[in-house]
Amino acid sequence: MFLINCPYCGERDQSEFSAGGEAHIIRPKQPTEMSDDQWAEYLFMRKNIKGIQFERWNHSHGCRKWFNMVRDTSNDKIHAVYKMGEKPPV
């Protein structure tokens, strides 16, 4: 449990948000041409990193907007919050 600085609403309790999993997984441009292996990779396979992870969050009990976050999953410390479409920080 931690506080999240929503880029639209400011700092709120984590329980107001929904986690959307790993970020920057690119939606297939040509879905009809993908193999089963590629579909499995896109749909199911995840890095599930212990450490710095780029992820998507939704302020579901607030502005309901999606945004990205850089969080250390080993201690839940948030390093950066940035809007959808913005470049991830290095």
Binding site: M1, Q14, S15, S18, A19, G21, N48, I49, K50, Q53, E55, T73, S74, N75, D76
Partner: peptide
């Protein structure tokens, strides 16, 4: 908890 974490705590 509904998010990925390795903290062995929980909310």
């Amino acid at each position: 908890d509904a998010y990925i974490s390795y903290t062995q705590r929980g909310s």
